[in-house]
Design a protein around this nucleic acid. Structure first.
Length: 572
DNA sequence: CTGGGGATGGGGCCC
DNA sequence: TGGGCCCCATCCCCA
């Protein structure tokens, strides 16, 4: 009995000890758990505070930008000055082939507005990228869609990390900068880069002498993009959710050539090429360019602007790249690769340029996607009436003729013109209704009508519409006749003239008169001969009334018969 | 002297 | 950018 009692007491002691041990363990774990909980809560509070700070910054930026945009309220939309990295002109960077990335200067952890942006083709791995979307338009319109987001990815970082953070609602590792606090507040540079995506928007090579600027209408979502992973995803797909119109520079396969693509909801180019686009806005007074595009279009320089901007550029489709719009700018020497389309410079012409660009894009787009053009929805005539400048401006002519080619047809011409264009020649000259395959050709052609001859001879006052013709003309001064006849000693300055001359030796007379059996070596001579049959004598002597079939005959006649009379008339 | 054809120079346009 | 072709203007030569 006593034994049982002792056993019971021992077991009770052991049980108590076990309970105590268990309680102790639970307490310890609970304390650890509490500690971890408190730490997590602290972290949550810290993150929450950071988030609030970021939101406050965004709100402050919105307010400041709204004020700034209201100052510039006259602008219908935002066209960013595209400030190419100035250091490129100094050889610190350049657009080169293959993968192109924007590289921060070494030792800088954050982008600053006054810092140059080195452009490095890289070795295939992007180093540091900045995504910055501006939406001044929406802010100016009172929209809440303003956003300004920078994301910076350091070297080697998995791009998916950014998406992961964004999807988790975590702020990017680099806080949004308050651009207004920049040492150069009037200078702002924005860069949008999308890398590693299917939509390869950017390519670049080294030797390019042209810079092609194209534009894109950015989508506006009106949300805070920082916390919207879908928006971030859109950015990565080359669809920055910024409102209004921005001019973006893209590297392209041509060196120093930049393409932009609008309505980039579809892949502009397949492959794994890096997609990159960037816009830059800078102080108009600090524009380091020698480009020919700096002119005040509002003062009637649209003609020049058009000539320069659209020279040598063509709407085109190259391979799989749907080049929706394209503006080519000649780069002079080592001038920085800079494209400047500032409203303050373009003035009224800005709308012209934008309208034309819009139109160009819409026209090209309409070939395949009739309803994708935003301009299309606006209505062409409205756009012309509200956006275009003086009706006699070259830009207007171009624009009108392009509109005609699109859907207005000959109506603009008062119904008198009939379009002779085909699908291959959708661009009509407003003045002669001639069709061309691209806008640039129309622009060059219309130099015939406008008298624009940009290429002048230094030896005489001859001017030419084409550089090649100037070069050919200058043989007149140099006496160079590189084309010599193998049958005789004749030399010619033009190859065609030699070929024409060689008919003298071959006896070929391909032009025959339908009225008689006369044959001619030249069509012009046949045409002159036909006047024999028609009796056409359009050239009449003002003194005696005698008529001649050729002006030269009349001139000889006047010299021989009325030379004294003409001299007396001149003396009087 | 006149008219006609041969031939060249130069510019525009297309490819 | 250059070549090729065409057109126009003009000059030259000759019947």
């Amino acid at each position: 009995m006593v034994f049982h009692t002792q056993i019971a007491s021992i077991m009770e002691v052991l049980a108590n000890a076990a309970v105590a041990e268990i309680c102790k363990l639970v307490d310890d774990d609970y304390a650890v758990f509490r500690l971890e909980m408190s730490q997590s809560q602290k972290e949550n509070r810290t993150l929450r505070r950071k988030l609030q700070q970021l939101e406050l910054k965004v709100v402050r930026e919105r307010a400041e930008r709204t004020i700034r945009d209201r100052v510039r309220a006259s602008r219908p939309c935002s066209v960013k000055i595209l400030d190419q990295y100035r250091g490129m002109a100094r050889g610190e960077g350049h657009l080169t082939g293959g993968h192109m990335s924007f590289v921060k200067p070494v030792g800088h952890n954050a982008w600053r507005d006054d810092q140059p942006i080195a452009v490095d083709e890289g070795s295939g791995t992007s180093t540091q990228h900045v995504i910055l979307i501006e939406s001044a338009d929406a802010e100016a319109a009172g929209s809440e869609g303003s956003s300004q987001v920078k994301q910076e990815r350091t070297e080697g970082e998995d791009p998916r990390d950014i998406q992961t953070r964004a999807a988790a609602g975590v702020a990017p590792p680099v806080a949004t900068e308050d651009l207004t606090a920049s040492p150069q507040p009037r200078t702002r540079r924005s860069i949008t880069e999308v890398s590693g995506m299917l939509d390869a928007v950017l390519k670049s090579e080294t030797d390019a002498e042209t810079l092609t600027v194209m534009h894109r209408r950015l989508l506006h979502t009106g949300s805070d993009h920082r916390s919207d992973p879908e928006i971030l995803g859109l950015r990565r797909l080359g669809c920055p959710p910024a409102p209004g119109l921005e001019y973006l520079l893209y590297g392209n396969p041509n060196p120093r050539t930049v393409h932009s693509h609008r309505d980039s909801g579809y892949a502009l180019e397949t492959g794994n090429d890096l997609s990159c686009s960037y816009t830059t806005e800078m102080d108009p007074g600090n524009m380091p360019l020698g480009l020919e595009t700096q002119m005040d279009l509002s003062r009637g320089d649209w003609n020049q602007y058009s000539s320069n901007v659209y020279s040598e550029g063509c709407l085109d489709k190259k391979g799989e790249v749907i080049v929706v719009d394209e503006v080519t700018v000649k780069v002079e020497g080592d001038a920085p690769l800079t494209w400047n389309v500032d409203e303050t410079h373009l003035g009224e012409g800005l709308s012209q340029g934008r309208a034309l660009l819009d139109y160009r894009e819409s026209l090209e787009t309409n070939r395949n996607i009739e309803t994708h053009s935003p301009l299309h929805a606006l209505g062409d005539r409205d756009l012309v009436s509200t956006s275009m400048g003086p009706s006699n401006s070259h830009g207007r002519i171009l624009f009108d003729q392009v509109l005609n080619s699109k859907d207005q047809g000959a109506q603009v011409l008062g119904g008198g013109a009939t379009s002779g264009s085909s699908k291959d020649e959708p661009f009509l000259c407003m003045l002669c209704n001639k069709g061309f395959s691209c806008l640039q050709k129309v622009e060059i052609h219309q130099r015939v009508h406008t008298g624009v001859k940009p290429f002048s001879c230094t030896q005489c006052h001859m001017r030419f519409t084409e550089a090649g013709k100037l070069k050919r003309h200058q043989r007149v001064h140099t006496g160079e006749k590189p084309f010599s006849c193998t049958q005789c000693q004749m030399c010619f300055a033009q190859a065609g003239h030699l070929k024409r001359h060689q008919r003298v030796h071959t006896g070929e007379k391909p032009y025959s008169c339908p009225q008689c059996h006369m044959r001619f070596t030249q069509a012009g001579n046949l045409k002159m001969h036909l006047k024999v049959h028609t009796g056409e004598r359009p050239f009449a002597c003002t003194h005696c009334g005698k008529r001649f079939s050729e002006r030269s005959y009349l001139r000889i006649h006047q010299l021989k018969k009325h030379s004294t009379l003409t001299e007396s008339n001149h003396s009087t």
